[in-house]
Write a protein that binds this DNA or RNA. Structure first.
Length: 659
RNA sequence: GCGCCCGUAGCUCAGCUGGAUAGAGCGACUGGCUACGAACCAGUAGGUCGGGAGUUCGAAUCUCUCCGGGCGCACCA
């Protein structure tokens, strides 16, 4: 409702300024005033016009206000302060709009988007940093879908990189297991219900250390072994590649299981092995050469390489660009950015090639596909999106910018403009948390505000460990309260609350704030947390349960009542303010998408819950004697409940029946 | 050296395209369960918005500069 009225007022003001002053103002600033005494919408536009019109802002505001009459949905306008224009809504009409609810199934926007997130190297267990990535990405997917977009969710799998090679070196050389025995070991672990990704977490850390533990000559030999292993994996068709395939696939399945615990699902898993074997790069290379984005360097430190100019670089015609980005090395191999350019051409349907597809992981209501050289028929088609979002941490903004630069240079300007690096800062550990976990922390590190998580060092909090810990904690709380419920019900509720707490925790911070992780904060269920919002939902539901009615029945009954009498006066301000908050859904959605910032929705959900709790405390609904007022109060609870549940679902958080 | 991010209450963070008295949670202190569940609510204390300069009718928000912290800048991925 808010967004609709805001747009209505905006366009009215725009046309008014044009008629009255002959001014075209593209963006009329409209804001929600800090206090209801200033109305529900306001604009400081008169200040901006004061200079152009050579008049006092107050006079201009007065002129605008007198021309602003009879705008549907508004009760009146007034000038305040030095020249603010404050708008008061027709409260009864507003309430009716909110009751009607903005359609949840919004008309398809027609936009086809692709969101890539998670993308964990399949050589170790997922940790809290990966959780932030996946939760941000999954929530953004829900927001785009809520806005009517068709969205494909992809999780890129680098199954042929050095990280996988390192753990393969661990299996083959540190553990000394030949291919057949690795296969056996994986079976045994699986049989014992042990987490393979956990096993690899330790082995990967050990291998990383092993590279540096020997004598200089030994370390040199180990590094050689590392790269020989990497090249065998890249080439494929040998035992080493077979081991890599087994391990990376087993770990990948674990990642999908971990994410499924958080209600995170994927549509397609493109793998680097197919990008290599299906020769995506060769097609991209041709296009890059033809468009002149890549050129062969014949001098300087990059002599013998195919390079591209970095974004923002200024090189005079004919000068040597020593700072250029190498895409093809002098030995003929392609760098990471090169492969990424090819992959992104595919994402936009510009490559002229496609993956083979094969079903890989089955969710309750859909299938997740994986890339393969020769796929099955029939299969869905992915790629060819109009807009893409890459959920990748801020440290990779340089390579991301290179890819965008290449697309733009090739003439794909629209695509480059619809390429969003959805960047976010890392999740680090507070020194206290690291000590708590039993890691050795140096004196120097103890003084730092936070310590970076490192898979290579095996330093971090594993995702499943955190989820297990959260569930244990919520289970204890549920057991203390839900004495009448059976085991299965309690476990279900504990799970819903644990996931709510975790997802909210990862979403409450804005993207470019580093999260210094601490168990005390993450395991909190009070204050600005997911469970706080879930609790508001449970309270609202209990009102209807005890009152033996439903939100739907109440809203139907409410339609016959004139709400105006209950919305005026000092005592009604808090209730009206709750209705206004409930009316902000699409406004917040639009803002989240425009800024790629899910934290705004998290904040909105919390504030709505807070206002509901306040309302709940001040007005006792079921004992209200005036039947019409009781219906009004019930309708207020119904609307708050509906909006809380929708907001939570967009955050990927369930609304428990009890807690 | 160059680039990006951050610096707001004791702690952790919001503060939308510059706008009306700078907010929340946690922590501290005080009060509220015989009313729809206290995972809740109310109140009190707590801030030179890192420092300085500038633009503006108006700056936590924009520009410059300095200080402090973090991250990038490979023929690694």
């Amino acid at each position: 409702m808010y967004l609709e009225l805001q747009k209505r007022l905006g366009s009215r003001l725009r046309s008014l300024l044009e008629e009255k002053y002959g001014l075209l103002v593209e963006n009329i600033p409209l804001e929600i005033p800090p206090d209801l005494k200033f109305g529900e919408l306001a604009t400081p536009i008169a200040f901006e016009l004061a200079r152009k019109l050579r008049k006092a802002p107050r006079i201009i505001a007065q002129e605008i206000v007198s021309a602003l009459n009879g705008l549907e949905g508004f009760a009146g306008f007034e000038v305040a302060g030095a020249g603010y224009i404050n708008a008061r809504l027709d409260r009864a009409a507003g309430v009716r709009l909110v009751v009607g609810g903005e359609s949840l199934a919004r008309a398809s926007s027609g936009l086809h988007s692709l969101v890539e997130h998670t993308s964990i190297n399949p050589n170790k267990a997922a940790h809290i940093g990966h959780l932030r990535n996946a939760i941000l990405g999954d929530t953004f997917v829900r927001l785009l879908r809520a806005a009517g977009q068709k969205v494909d969710v992809q999780n890129y799998i680098d199954n042929t990189g050095v990280q996988v090679a390192d753990v393969v070196v661990g299996f083959l050389h540190l553990e000394g297991l030949p291919e057949a025995e690795v296969r056996q070991l994986l079976e045994v672990l699986k049989g014992n219900g042990e987490r393979i990704d956990y096993y690899c977490w330790d082995l990967y850390a050990r291998t990383s250390q092993w590279y540096e533990q020997g004598t200089a000559e030994e370390n040199e030999a180990r590094k050689e072994l590392r790269y020989a292993t990497l090249h065998e994996i890249e080439r494929g068709g040998n035992d080493t590649a077979e081991v890599a395939e087994m391990i990376s696939t087993a770990v990948l399945r674990r990642h999908l299981e971990t994410m499924q615990r958080l209600d995170i699902e994927y549509d397609f898993l493109p793998r680097e092995s197919e990008i290599l074997h299906l020769k995506f790069w060769e097609s991209a290379f041709e296009q890059l050469k033809q468009t002149g984005v890549l050129y062969f360097e014949s001098e300087g430190k990059n002599k013998g390489c195919w390079v591209m100019t970095r974004p923002g670089a200024e090189v005079a015609e004919g000068d040597l660009d020593e700072d250029s980005k190498v895409i093809v090395r002098s030995n003929g191999t392609v760098t990471y950015v090169g492969k990424d350019i090819a992959y992104h051409l595919w994402k936009f349907g510009l490559l002229g090639k496609d993956f083979g597809y094969q079903p890989f992981f089955t969710y309750p209501d859909h299938e997740c596909w994986i890339s393969t050289e020769q796929g099955v028929e029939p299969h869905p088609h992915f790629g060819g999106a109009q807009a893409i979002y890459n959920v990748i941490d801020a440290r990779q903004s340089d390579p991301q910018a290179n890819v965008i630069q290449a697309l733009r240079g090739m003439g794909h300007v629209d695509q480059a403009n619809r390429y969003t690096h959805f960047s976010y800062e890392m999740v680090a550990l507070t020194p206290r948390c690291a000590v708590e976990l039993g890691y050795d922390v140096s004196e120097e590190d103890l003084k730092r505000p936070y310590l970076e998580v490192s898979g290579r060092k095996g330093f971090g909090v594993k995702a499943d460990d955190l989820i297990d810990k959260l569930i244990a904690a919520t289970r204890a709380e549920v057991d203390a309260r839900q004495t009448g419920r059976d085991e299965a019900e309690r476990q279900k509720i504990a799970g819903q609350i644990a996931i709510g707490a975790l997802r909210y925790f990862m979403l409450k911070f804005t993207r470019n704030s580093v999260i210094a992780f601490d168990f005390k904060d993450a395991l909190s269920f009070e204050g600005e947390t997911g469970p706080y919002i879930q609790y508001a939902v449970v309270r609202a539901r209990n009102i209807f349960r005890k009152g033996e009615t439903t939100p739907e029945a109440v809203l139907a009954e409410f339609a016959a009542i004139d709400p105006a009498a209950y919305l005026e006066g000092e005592a009604a301000e808090d209730i009206w303010s709750l209705w206004l908050r409930a009316a902000r859904r699409t406004l917040v959605l639009e803002q989240c998408i425009a800024t790629s910032e899910p934290a705004y929705l998290a904040k909105h959900a919390f504030q709505l819950a807070q206002e509901f709790n306040n309302f709940y405390h001040r007005h006792h609904i079921l004992t209200e004697e005036d039947p019409k007022r009781k219906t009004f109060l019930l309708a207020t609870a119904a609307v708050a409940l509906r909006e809380l549940v929708v907001a939570l679902s967009w955050l990927g958080i369930e609304s428990p029946e009890a807690m």
